[in-house]
């Protein structure tokens, strides 16, 4: 038998390797990690630095720590890009999208997990599969549908004659209300929830809606956190749909407000970076306060499948 000798030899090799390598390895890895993190974050350091650099200095080489820090760029950003209005628009749309996503797809996912019916599995996969449809495929039809919503924006009952929901907050929020992926996340979450609670509640005569809202939804806090964060960032970070559906500056979302800096041939980088900082802060805060659910939500949905 050669196996024992092989094992012996390898364990000898291993212990030798253990003796010399780990420390050097660990230092090497720490250095690699720090370098990687710095390289990845470097553009953000420069963004922040430039945001506090006076516009007149921004054309020279900028140092990582501004020589004469100033807040003037933030003032310019708020006035020139009408940033306050954009923040308001994005916040309203995000709020509606978050509430809708925390109820509609979560309720569906709950039903798929806890109250299956004939054909529910096929229906579930059909719904989730739609999350892979490219944006460009639905962009034009959605634009025409927003324009043709009956009785909105001067439209008649057949959706003709007016501009419908184009250039309104209602039009902007249209595609974000239910992300099919959230149905998936909700089903994953509730498929590990105890069914006994529902059975007990049913025996007590509680209605199904009541069971969902009073028993299971309060248990689903981590799920709700993930769904809310996803819905928020989806709205806050989107660019193409608001670009297409809005036309006036009053209806601009935050990302469109940033793009306004590009309209003039000569881009004012310092105020643009100040605006970028402001627009980024809400997403960053949401992320930092929910890091755990954010990252584990991503991996939970994917590996525990």
């Amino acid at each position: 038998m050669t196996a024992p000798t092989a094992t012996l030899r390898s364990s000898a090799v291993r212990s030798k390797r253990r003796g010399m390598n780990p420390r050097r390895n660990r230092v090497g890895m720490a250095v690699a990690l720090v370098l990687a993190a710095l390289a990845v974050l470097l553009p953000f350091f420069w963004m922040i630095s430039l945001a506090f650099t006076p516009e007149k200095d921004a054309f020279r080489s900028v140092s990582l720590v501004p020589a004469n820090p100033t807040l003037e760029n933030f003032g310019t950003a708020f006035i020139d890009a009408n940033l306050l209005h954009a923040l308001y628009n994005s916040a309203i749309v995000a709020l509606v999208a978050v509430i809708a996503n925390c109820i509609i797809p979560v309720l569906a996912g709950y039903a798929f997990a806890m109250m299956p019916f004939p054909g529910s599995t096929a229906m579930f996969f059909g719904l989730v599969a739609t999350s892979a449809i490219p944006v460009s495929v639905t962009l034009i039809p959605l634009f025409l549908m927003a324009k043709g919503i009956p009785l909105a924006g001067g439209n008649d009952i057949f959706g003709h004659g007016g501009s419908g929901l184009l250039d309104t907050l209602g039009g902007i929020m249209l595609p974000y209300l239910v992300a099919p992926m959230n149905i998936f996340l909700a089903r994953q979450y509730f498929s590990t929830a105890p069914a006994e609670l529902a059975e007990a509640a049913r025996i007590d005569g509680a209605g199904e809606l009541r069971i969902f809202f009073r028993v299971y939804l309060p248990l689903a806090r981590p799920l709700i956190a993930v769904v809310a964060i996803f819905a928020f960032t989806a709205v806050w970070d989107d660019f193409l749909w608001p670009l297409v559906v809005t036309s006036s500056t009053e209806m601009q979302t935050v990302q469109l407000a940033l793009a306004r800096f590009l309209a003039s041939g000569n881009v004012q980088y310092a105020p643009l970076m100040a605006a970028s900082v402001i627009v980024t802060i809400p997403v960053l805060l949401v992320f930092l306060f929910n890091q755990r659910s954010f990252i584990s939500g991503l991996s939970d949905g994917s590996v525990k499948g």
Binding site: A97, F112, A113, M114, P116, T121, F125, V128, A129, T130, S131, A132, I133, P134, V135, T138, L139, L142, P175, Y176, A179, P180, M181, F184, L185, R187, Q188, F190, S191, A195, V226, F230, A231, T233, A234, V235, D237, D238, F239, L240, W241, G297, L298, D300, G301, S302, V303, K304, G305
Partner: peptide
Amino acid sequence: MTATATSPGVAAAAAPGTIQGARPPRA
């Protein structure tokens, strides 16, 4: 338009389950 379009990782959560074949609920 899928609302998830702008953020890959966000939508990311959905599919592996479907690729690996999500376990049907309640076995």
